[in-house]
């Protein structure tokens, strides 16, 4: 009797590899960031081990250089927060609008050619992000492909300034993250029973009504997964806003980078990173709760 119980006691050791990874790889770095956000910045970067809330204070507020007691709201930071959230939302919506017909196209191909289309969708993933982003830059810069063609065709008289604008960031992010929307949407459509679409037509629904009442509700899980997958990397995007925003249009990722680099204010950078995490988690919870409420409403 005692023998099996003895061995049972050490069974948790089997979880040790998983626990080690969870603690070291997931919680560990996060904990370090959290601790750093409450320390004092060193003069040459790094931190001095002295407790301070100045990093967190500076996330939202700003002190006058000459009069440290003159406190104002840090509108520059708030603008960056807002821009990050707003651009990420737009990216998500744009990806959903572009991703739906793309995924639908793939899902309605004959089974043996679907793999090829999916393969084509994932190819950009194998190319370096920086190279893809520079390719976009080449397309939209003032002497780039689009402006050259439009000028040549006489549609415009002067090049349109697209590079180094929020529009450029939006286009770049939508391009980079589109597969993350297409793939879960495709997975949802692949499971869709097309007889339901026929049943919709049979019961006098028009194309638009079938889309709205049959297809969209049934592929909703794909939209949810795709939105989450696009929104999260968008809000923390670094390379795309850096290259296409030209350092003039900052997003949260760039702001954080600035604090760890030129700004030499690691605690502020750490606090900003935690803020980003909080925004993502809050957005996710809000999103999922809204969805659940919709679901609940339909029962009643």
């Amino acid at each position: 009797m005692a023998e099996p119980r003895e061995s049972h006691r050490w069974k948790w050791l089997l979880c040790a590899p998983a626990l080690t990874i969870l603690v070291l790889a997931a919680s560990g770095p996060l904990l370090i960031v959290l601790v750093y956000s409450f320390l004092t910045p060193g003069n040459m970067g790094g931190v001095i081990w002295q407790f301070s809330t100045e990093g967190w204070f500076r996330v939202f507020f700003r002190r006058d250089i000459f009069d440290p007691d003159d406190i104002t709201l840090n509108s520059a930071h708030l603008a960056v927060f807002w821009r990050s959230i707003w651009l990420s939302l737009q990216t998500t919506v744009l990806c959903a609008i572009l991703g739906f017909p793309t995924a639908w196209f793939i899902a309605t191909r004959p089974a043996n050619t679907r793999t090829i289309w999916l393969f084509l969708i994932t190819i950009p993933f194998w190319t370096n992000l920086l190279i893809r982003t520079f390719a976009i830059q080449e397309l939209i810069r003032n002497s780039g492909t689009i402006n050259t063609v439009l000028l040549w065709a006489g549609v415009i008289d002067a090049p349109i300034q697209m590079l180094f604008t929020e529009f450029a960031i939006l286009i770049g992010m939508a391009y980079v993250f589109l597969p993350l929307m297409v793939l879960p949407l495709y997975a949802a459509m692949d499971k869709l029973d097309f007889r339901l679409v026929e049943a919709g037509y049979d019961l006098y629904a028009s194309r638009l009504q079938v889309l709205r009442h049959v297809i969209l509700p049934l592929v909703k899980p794909g939209f949810i997964a795709g939105s989450i997958l696009v929104f999260i990397p968008s809000i923390g995007a670094y390379v795309t806003p850096r290259v296409l925003g030209g350092g003039r249009t900052l997003m949260l990722g760039n702001l954080i980078d600035l604090q760890f680099g030129q700004g030499r204010n690691w605690p502020l950078g750490a606090a900003l990173a935690i803020t980003l995490l909080v925004i993502v988690v809050a957005a996710l919870m809000f999103y999922l709760r809204t969805l659940n409420r919709d679901e609940g409403g339909r029962h009643g």
Binding site: E198, A199, L203, Y204, S206, L218
Partner: peptide, 28 residues
């Protein structure tokens, strides 16, 4: 099919899984 006075009972029924029984019946 949406302009013909004809309705179909499908082999595997093809009921809309996201709608209640009453909503399914009222769909047409």
């Amino acid at each position: 099919p949406n302009s013909r006075p004809v309705n179909t009972v499908f082999q595997n029924y093809a009921l809309f899984p996201h709608m209640s029984v009453a909503q399914n019946i009222g769909f047409g």
